[in-house]
Design a protein around this nucleic acid. Structure first.
Lengths: 154, 154
DNA sequence: TAATTGTTGACTATTTTACTTGGTTAATAT
DNA sequence: ATATTAACCAAGTAAAATAGTCAACAATTA
């Protein structure tokens, strides 16, 4: 479980899709412009998100990306795992040839902790998150002051 | 909040110190050997942990590092923040000149989420973690099969 | 057909990670 | 005192990850 700006890009982009879930596909160009991420970099990220089955692309004019399943069933952990491919290959794998056993010990402690974090992020879904009262408030405020995404994308 | 192998190294090393909290200082050489991390890299990490006030070094023979305060009061978030120095400087800072307001929106959603993760990891302290029944079991098992750290360090 | 948008691959620059080398100090043991 | 131990410190380096560019191609719509 790695958590970097790469993961943040993916999560914020996915939140973008989740918020406009019912307004048709969102183009990467739009996300690129709004979030200041290069288009090609987003393409790379979405390539992975698509292969992970989290989004589906729609080609042609009016196309873009949409969530491939309900936001309620896409967790933050899903997204981060999709773009990070962190097959960790922690040392001392299998062979218990550590000098005094401590190596395997702390390694195991970390995996325990890592599982905890993973579990925590698995319980935060896009749908659940954007439906929290305080988050809904943020969304409402921004859409009141700024112009809507639909008009901006049209 | 960045979470990489660097952070894992730091956390596992700190868990090492926490487990042997009452057995005097632990040398970096010992941790290096046990966890397969280069000594100098550990020195760099502990330099930061020390400057963050999480550990204190003891020079000379029999020296090493120990926690500078009780493990109950050192959280995983403390450790990761100490070694990662992630002042993120997320774009669109202050100036709300985003094209359609969406940029600031998802940025804010991320900080919300990020605060959640931070809060979660702040609640997991070294002391609390290694005192969990299932974790204590791991520790007991390893110390039964392998030789003890004290004998290995002596 | 022309425009739009996803899809893919190769290639590059920058940053971070992880490590190396070579020292210096401070404490301890002989 | 001297040698040993170990923390401290500072450059520099190789490998990897991050972030981005460029260029082509495929499907869809108007």
């Amino acid at each position: 479980m790695r958590l970097s700006t790469k993961g943040r890009y993916a999560v914020t982009a996915m939140l973008d899709l989740a918020i406009h879930e019912n307004k048709g596909p969102i183009t990467l160009a739009s996300i690129s412009q709004c979030q200041g991420i290069s288009l090609s970099y987003l393409e790379q990220l979405f390539s992975r998100l698509r292969r992970a089955g989290l989004v589906e692309g729609v080609r042609g004019p009016g196309g873009g990306y949409r969530l491939s399943r309900d936001g309620q069933h896409i967790s933050v952990a899903d997204i981060i795992n999709a773009v990070d491919e962190s097959f960790d290959a922690t040392r001392c794998q299998g062979r218990a040839d550590c000098q005094d056993g401590e190596k395997c010990l702390t390694h195991e402690l970390w995996t325990d902790l890592s599982d905890q974090i993973q579990g925590f992020l698995s319980n935060i879904t896009l749908g659940e998150f954007i439906n929290r009262p305080q988050v809904r408030e943020i969304i409402a405020n921004v859409q009141r002051t700024g112009s809507d995404r639909v008009s901006a994308a049209a």
